[in-house]
């Protein structure tokens, strides 16, 4: 993981980026109606897969914009990066990403 492809800037040095954890987590629609357990799950529980992971990144030292990435946590290889408004890309099951 020496380079990361920013959806806006193209491939850049990995140190320009920062990871912000799991992507596609929606804040509960009616916070006043959910239980403590549901709140705890929303705030503290994250997916921690050994394999394909969907996560949010920012290009801090570049365009400073947010984007989503699909990365393999075993090899640290990126499978895809996409803008937050884009649909989640389909990934072939055998795609291990570019190291």
């Amino acid at each position: 993981m020496l380079q990361i492809t920013c959806p806006w800037c193209g491939p850049r040095d990995a140190v320009e980026f920062h990871c912000h954890g799991e992507a596609h987590i929606a804040r509960p629609e009616k916070p006043h109606e959910i239980s403590d357990a549901e709140w705890g799950d929303y705030i503290f529980f994250r997916k921690n897969p050994k394999g394909v992971h969907f996560e949010r990144w920012t290009h801090d030292a570049g365009c400073r914009r947010w984007f989503n990435a699909i990365r393999n946590t075993v090899t640290d290889a990126f499978i895809a990066t996409y803008a937050p408004t884009d649909p989640i890309p389909e990934i072939p099951t055998d795609d291990q990403g570019d190291a």
């Binding site: 920062h18 992971h53 946590t73 640290d76």
Partner: peptide, 13 residues
């Protein structure tokens, strides 16, 4: 490293 990883090496930066 500031991201989830199971690769037992870590980033060079």
């Amino acid at each position: 490293d500031a991201y989830i990883s199971y690769a037992q090496r870590g980033g060079f930066d």
